[in-house]
Design a protein around this nucleic acid. Structure first.
Lengths: 245, 245
DNA sequence: GACGTGAAAATGTGCTTACAAACTATTGAC
DNA sequence: GTCAATAGTTTGTAAGCACATTTTCACGTC
């Protein structure tokens, strides 16, 4: 039972339960708390930190929902045994690569602010024929071309520049405009590459592509992005963590 | 604002918030409540149903976490606009196909209760060399061979029979034994089929495979299953819904 | 010594209250 | 008529309390 050095700032606009949840998460991901370790019980923690039990409980619940902790009535709360310590997240490949330490790079192959694509318009919930912002990018991991990323955005985003996309990644650009995708439906499959795709990605003849189409939505359910990506299968796979909790 | 006919049974062992959450979920998935519809506010609902506001709030939170509802401070709660009404779930392909109305069928190609596979043992958290239960199945959708499913289970499951697997699907068999996988980590990719796989799946030469490896865990984090599946890419893709909430 | 009972510990559920923050709509002043 | 202040509605956060349920462990009895 570790007495973790938790610091709560009551003047902060960040909710107390979230401050606590973040520090607990850090303690686990940092390795301060290891799988199987017992956890300070709710009453003791609420007493020590001068927080109410519901607040502590809510913080712990966040970690339980993420699969970091396991609660057992009558026993106590312990750090989950497995290293399932990551939930399905809404991130771009850019973020994924940065986390892995490979330096990602992006070439913007084309940027068209009056594109027409009925499948994309449909996915965005717009009438067919609506002029969309179409982006085609080539993503490298180090020096290896990794993926062709085709994305469509609603016409309200028609003032995007190539610089922004090159330096920041699409999701960072969207976030900077206050657009925060919260839900996305992705469909993952495979197919053979076209001749042009093989050329672009420097692929050998036999190698297949992993395909991913994604529709991303805002908190209120309005569509913010439609993407059709294809990855070199020898360089990329998608990790998904599904949970019943 | 609909006054939904909610019925709460206070004598039931099922928590009140969960009873409420289930009935609200049903109202949305049934179509009684439609996307964009406003929701009775928390105070009114707690008053009407003689429940406390935290209880009602907790029920609503369940739906918000599933992406069915959207809460906005000062405005109210509304049914989410999009039909993102399904979260990433822990289901087998068997369930998926049944939902789609295609009749799935399974041939058990082999069942070996003393198999050795170090990758699978590692994924199950067992020492290398441990004898495992190895299952290879061929899954049809209608008359089309769809997938080769290779699965490994801990040695405690060494009394499985072919009948069970043929009629029920692996996850149903596990559930019947009180084993309930709650978290799974899946990795989805693509590769070319081997000559034997092409024969088994009646594939043409050029067509790639979608591959999925899965490690499934119990509530306490102990591994219960490791799977290595491959699907005909022209017949199958994986839908994943990721959420930030 | 073995077994059962009960106390203790821990999480699970539920209620009440209070105040804060965000948004709407009305009202009032200019 | 337009704009700004204000009141009201609704969700967000937080505390405190009570009791239920499950598990473990120690004690006492047979």
């Amino acid at each position: 039972m570790a007495a973790l050095p938790i610091q709560i700032d009551r003047t902060s606009p960040v909710p107390l339960y979230h401050q606590l949840a973040e520090q607990l998460t850090a303690a686990i991901t940092d390795g301060t708390l290891r799988p199987g370790d017992p956890f300070e019980n709710e009453l003791a923690m609420s007493d020590r930190l001068s927080l109410s039990r519901p607040t502590v409980r809510r913080a712990i619940s966040e970690l339980v929902n993420k699969g970091l902790l396991v609660r057992r009535r009558g026993i106590g709360t312990t750090v989950a045994n497995q290293m399932v310590h990551r939930k399905a997240e809404l991130t771009s490949l850019y973020d994924d690569l940065e986390r892995e330490g490979r330096t990602p790079r992006t070439d913007v192959l084309s940027l068209n602010c009056t594109a027409h694509d009925d499948r994309a318009a449909d996915a965005l919930g717009l009438p067919p024929g609506t002029p969309l912002v179409a982006i085609v990018r080539l993503r490298y991991a180090g020096d290896v071309p990794l993926a062709i990323l085709r994305n469509w955005l609603p016409p309200t985003m028609n003032d995007l520049t190539q610089e922004q996309l090159t330096t920041e990644g699409l999701y960072a650009v969207l976030r900077a405009r206050g657009i925060r995708p919260t839900v996305a439906r992705q469909r993952i499959g495979a197919r053979n590459a076209s001749a042009e795709e093989r050329r672009t990605l420097h692929m050998s003849k036999a190698e297949p592509l992993v395909t991913m189409t994604r529709s991303a939505y805002d908190a209120d359910g309005s569509a913010v992005e439609f993407g059709d990506h294809c990855y070199r299968a020898d360089q990329y796979s998608v990790e998904v963590i599904v949970s019943d909790r």
